[in-house]
Write a protein that binds this DNA or RNA. Structure first.
Lengths: 125, 125
DNA sequence: CGGTATCCCCGCTGATACTG
DNA sequence: CAGTATCAGCGGGGATACCG
């Protein structure tokens, strides 16, 4: 197996429009309910949130705790194994910050940095 | 701007099926010609290789050096700015290795790990 | 050699409605 | 509350052919 596949398989985890944001929120807030994740990401549909969470669960990154009660309650959290992604998320965030700074220097401060990435619609915590 | 966007904008760089592999080869081999990259990744089409390289060039990650001669010769390399991705690529590769190991422990050694990721067709350096 | 130009598919994503 | 079900679209990516 070529070394490049390691990089590829690492990336697999992040494939999907919303996974990085979901992971960010779970890493930041610890345990979150389905509805809390929805509130944190107003633009994601239930369908997408569910499917992305299921994939993360399948990859053993996210744990899904179901409370059998009415009304239902489901809590999501990062698994112990998922916590091994911490340095990666950190490196990702740090490079992102440096990159944003780089863009500011290139194009000036006045323009919204979000706009560079077409991320105006993304809202976070 | 929410912190999560930092992670998102970092990911932007890797969006695209082949960018991680391209970056891996360029990080590993230094300077490479278009045809060398093709040889390293037999399954990528010229169209894809070109478009992904253009995007990396646009993001100032990859440098494109054109030698005006016949036959043409074009060399690609990581820019100084692109080299700031090194820790990220490293973290990515390291997590990938750990992840692959994790999969082996879960499902046993006999099965091709590539198969877990559907990466049988990917061939590297 | 190092690309463009074209055509086309399919699967990711979104919108909406329904359910235990 | 926390999801499925269903339908529809659009564009990323592949195959092939052609060009400077």
């Amino acid at each position: 197996m070529p070394e490049s596949c390691k990089v590829e398989s690492a990336l697999e985890i992040f494939v999907g429009k919303w996974k990085p944001v979901i992971l960010f929120h779970l890493f930041t807030n610890g345990t979150m309910r389905f509805s809390e994740l929805q509130k944190a990401m107003p633009d994601i549909t239930k369908k997408m949130l569910t499917s992305q969470l299921r994939e993360l669960e399948y990859h053993n990154i996210v744990h899904r705790e179901i409370y059998r009660q009415i009304p239902p309650k489901v809590e999501y959290s990062i698994t112990e194994y998922g916590k091994k992604l911490t340095p990666l998320i950190k490196a990702l965030g740090e490079w992102g910050m440096a990159h944003v700074q780089h863009l500011k220097e290139l194009y000036g401060e006045e323009r919204s940095v979000d706009a560079f990435e077409g991320k105006e619609e993304i809202s976070g915590a």
